[in-house]
Design a protein around this nucleic acid. Structure first.
Lengths: 349, 349
DNA sequence: TGTTAGCACTCTATTTAGATGAGTGCTAGG
DNA sequence: CCTAGCACTCATCTAAATAGAGTGCTAACA
């Protein structure tokens, strides 16, 4: 408990707002004036605190559930707090270690690294951790291997210059000889080598328009394989760890609300949308309750930060929890973890 | 409601047990004698039904939550029912269509097929659907491609004869030339082609023991790549769809129990253990409540059936729900879906 | 011997009323 | 500007009363 540590240079009303937010995060019940005076050293009486509270309420930063209850921050209050007042929490040695551990991960697989990071985040914050996996289409074509596993079946493996890998089955309408297949492979590697995947589609279409004879057949396969396969239009993949943690929060006693939340987490779509918007952020971005309006996430806050994979490729990692989360702690953990992930990828470049 | 359809050839006590089980699945509250007489045509008075109930209770097939409550099946009662009395439900046209749809799936990817099947199952049963992905180590070596993406980084792609694909990054301690890499690739493909993956480890160790000179170096890489990579000791992967569905059941009003269940579903381990045991089953296998004792799944029933992938390779697909689930429906859906999955894979062989 | 109407009994769930107490807003005085 | 004092509000807790569902038993009946 470092309640007394609230920065004394801040104005009194700021200190009181901060105290309410921190206490509410910890207690989960509305915070009264007397409680604040006991826990923090404001050197004023509860009555004075009440006056300040009344003022904060007219500013829309806190509310009452009912007349005789303590105060609760509004979503606007949280927004004000994180923008103006919040200072990130220093990690304690234990957290420090968990974050640093990521660098020493044995696994080479980006997915493993992200899963590990998400797992650690969810444990440390008692929230659900999410991570957006780097998107294949951001990369550029390094090489494609085609391995026939039958007369009409091919396994296609695409590797990007950044080391991302994706494979898919491709079945042709007519049998292809091994020579056909290796011809197609050579063709693809010759034409597309080094090209950003984002441009491949347009380029192939252009080529196809001008092709004729035996080339036309080859082109048809190339276009089908790449455009219909999962290589260029891959769905964003999201890692989700510790979703059951959010059920511990008392605000999720309401089963029906909880079910909606979990169902949104399962479908992943809304989350992906939010995280995609953060790919270009500078630092940790907070999506607080009402800012997620219209989604099933409006009772939650998502703290997310972008990480760099390799070259220009980015992803995002973050934590989802009740709006009442511990902002200084979650924000700094997410920020540090995003850095650690970036570093883990850079080291292997 | 086809309550009256209960097979009249069964003994009265059997018919009453069945009626209790079906009604309880639907209502979710203890079932009284009067209710049964109204809903089913037993042609006896509630008093007689009560006498039969008392008998069923001494047999341990049903219980009372308390004196003045109706009856609830015991787990033993469910076991007795599914073994002796149950007849699978005929699918209605809608379900029939959903199951058949799987055959017409466009995707070639086994994962997609399973995900689609699981999704359909979870929708139709309002439970959580699970699917165990075919295990790489069951297959045999078809071909391995090594693609260098830097001086000390290799992407290794293993394809099995059955068309399963797995890739991993491999980083070497010293730089390797493209020739080194293609030499290693040729070596692996020559030595291991056609070999069951289960035998690869022992075979490589044997080779390594006798290798010397330049071969020894190659062997070291081969062993490291295969043994430390995810190719031979891959964790079982589990698909989970519709976990939030189980929250609809009133027995999961209790948040704490629900949290434990979801956390067990997240970790997937207990589920994998259960499904692995069903790989050799003949047909749908039911794991009812108390039979999952010691796990967090003891309030649930898992209905699972094996499917065949290609050649001898198997997996399992199933549904998890409250013990009170609709057994005839779930059992037949799971059975039919496992067949449909098998067929979907066979068609592409 | 099996069936059933009748009835006392039990126990949960619901309702009602009252007491408790946390926390506020306001006022008046320092 | 601060604060002690106090009336007021309203959720929460407690206890008691009530209602009702469903049983088990008994005695009569076919």
């Amino acid at each position: 408990m470092d309640n007394m540590a609230i920065n004394p240079s801040k104005s009194r009303s700021h200190r009181i707002l901060e105290a309410i937010i921190l206490s509410y995060a910890e207690e989960g019940i509305p915070i009264g004036s007397e409680f604040l005076c006991e826990e923090y050293e404001f050197d004023v009486s509860p009555a004075t605190v009440r006056n300040v509270m009344a003022e904060l309420e007219t500013q829309g930063l806190i509310t009452h559930p009912h007349t005789s209850a303590g105060r609760v921050p509004t979503d606007m209050g949280y927004r004000y707090y994180v923008d103006i007042l919040m200072q990130r929490k220093r990690l304690n040695p234990d957290e420090e270690e968990q974050v640093e551990n990521l660098g020493r991960a044995k696994s080479e697989d980006p997915l493993d690294v992200l899963e590990q990071a998400a797992h650690a985040l969810s444990e440390m914050t008692q929230g659900a951790a999410v991570a957006l996996v780097p998107h294949l289409a951001q990369g550029s074509f390094l090489s494609m291997k085609l391995i026939p596993i039958g007369e009409k079946q091919i396994v296609a493996v695409l590797i990007t210059a950044e080391g991302m890998v994706k494979h898919a089955n491709y079945s042709t309408d007519r049998p292809m000889t091994p020579e056909d297949v290796s011809g197609l492979e050579a063709f693809l590697n010759k034409e597309l080598s080094g090209m950003p995947l984002a441009n491949v589609s347009a380029y192939l279409n252009e080529l196809a328009a001008n092709a004729s004879g035996a080339d036309a057949e080859k082109m048809r396969h190339a276009v089908e394989l790449l455009q219909q396969g999962p290589f260029l239009h891959e769905d964003a993949t999201l890692i989700l760890e510790g979703a059951s943690n959010v059920l511990q929060a008392p605000e999720f006693r309401d089963i029906e609300r909880t079910r909606r939340l979990l169902s949104a987490l399962e479908s992943k779509e809304e989350l992906v949308q939010i995280l995609l918007r953060d790919l270009n952020a500078e630092d940790v971005k907070l999506h607080i309750g009402f800012e997620n309006k219209g989604t099933s996430l409006q009772d939650c806050t998502i703290a997310a930060a972008p990480y760099r994979f390799r070259w220009g490729i980015t992803g995002a990692i973050g934590v989802l929890g009740p709006t009442r989360m511990n902002y200084p702690k979650v924000t700094s953990l997410v920020g540090r973890m995003a850095q650690a992930v970036t570093r883990a990828f850079q080291e292997r470049e």
